[in-house]
Design a protein around this nucleic acid. Structure first.
Ligand code: MN
Ligand code: MN
Ligand code: ZN
Ligand code: ZN
Lengths: 150, 150
DNA sequence: TATTAAACGATAATTGTTATCGAAAAGTCA
DNA sequence: TGACTTTTCGATAACAATTATCGTTTAATA
C-alpha cells in the first residue's frame, strides 16, 4: 500500500506556494496537482500531455518553468542526478555508487563494502530483477568544503 | 582497493572485438582502452577530450557511435537508465525503485519493504551522505512477456 | 592484392531544455 | 476596489546532447 498522498485543498496549496515564494496561478495549481497524482515519475512531456486536458492552451515552456520552480523549492525532486548526459560504466562487477549531487562525480563502492540488501516482501507483480545497486547521494569532500553559492 | 582492470593486450582485444562482432579499428582500440582506464564514469565529451590526445582527428560522432556499439555488445554499461529525459519524483518519503530497463517504468518500493542497508566500512574520504536508495533493475511484467524484438 | 563490407569524419537533423519578450494575470496597498 | 508593480504566461528562438546521413577511407575476406 502506497503512502496516500492527500491532494492538498486550495487553502493548503496557497500556504505551500506562499512558503515557497511562488505566486499562485491557475497553471501552477493544475501542474502541482497533476504531478502529485501521477505516481509514475513522469517526464515533462508526460505532465504536459496530462495537463492539456485541463488547460489546452498551456505551453510546454510553462511546464518546464514550473517543474523547475517546484524542484528549486523542494516540492518535488528529480529521479536521477545524471539526467543531463550519458555516463559510462566500465566496471562490470556488481557494485554501488557514491554520487555527488553538486559536481556529479560518481565513485564506486565495492559490493563487499556493504551487507547484502535483503527484501522483506515479494516484489510487486512479476517484476524480474537483473541486478540491484545502492546509490548514496550527497556531497563529495571537495564540494562540501566549498561554500553554497546558490 | 579497486579491482584492477588489467588493460587487455592487443591479441586479447582482437578476441573481445571479434566476439562482439566489431571489426578492429584504431579508433576503437584507443576508445575502448580509454574507457577502461577512466574509472570516473565519463561522459562522451570527457572521453572525446581524453582520446583527442592520441587521435587529434577523431570525431565526436565516432565517439558516440562506438560508445553505443560497446554498450550494445555489453562491453560497457550506462550508469543511469534515465539519462535521456528528466523524470520527476513527487514521493518525498525515503524509498526505493524498481526500474524496467526496457520501458523505463519506475515503481516505488517503500522503505519498509527492505532491511536497512548496512555499510561494512567507512565511506571513502569525507563524503557526506544525504540519503541513499536502492535501485532494482530488470524487466516489468509487461515487458518480460513481450518478445525481445531487438 | 582485388573485392566487399564496415567504419570514419564532416555535418545536418532531431530532441530535450532553457532563454527571451511582449501580453496577461497576480500581488500590493491605499 | 482600483492603480501600480511584479510575476507569470504563451510563443518562439536559442542551446546542448545525441543521432542520422553520406561520400571517403579503412578493415575483413579469400
Ligand atoms: Mn560504477
Ligand atoms: Mn520514487
Ligand atoms: Zn562534488
Ligand atoms: Zn517495462
Amino acid at each position: 500500500m502506497q503512502p496516500t498522498t492527500v491532494m492538498p485543498p486550495m487553502d493548503e496549496l496557497r500556504k505551500v506556494f506562499r512558503e515557497a515564494g511562488l505566486s499562485l496561478t491557475h497553471q501552477r495549481v493544475v501542474l502541482y496537482r497533476a504531478v502529485l497524482e501521477m505516481r509514475s515519475h513522469p517526464s515533462p512531456e508526460a505532465i504536459y500531455e496530462r495537463v492539456r486536458d485541463e488547460i489546452p492552451s498551456i505551453s510546454l515552456g510553462t511546464v518546464y518553468k514550473n517543474i523547475r520552480a517546484f524542484m528549486d523549492a523542494g516540492l518535488v525532486r528529480e529521479v536521477s542526478p545524471h539526467h543531463g548526459t550519458l555516463r559510462l560504466e566500465s566496471n562490470l562487477e556488481e557494485h554501488h555508487h557514491l554520487v555527488c549531487t553538486r559536481c556529479k562525480a560518481i565513485v564506486d563502492l565495492e559490493e563487499s563494502d556493504l551487507e547484502p540488501v535483503r527484501l522483506r516482501r515479494e516484489l510487486p507483480g512479476g517484476f524480474r530483477v537483473d541486478r540491484y545497486s545502492v546509490e548514496f547521494r550527497g556531497l563529495c569532500a571537495a564540494c562540501s568544503a566549498k561554500p553554497d553559492l546558490s
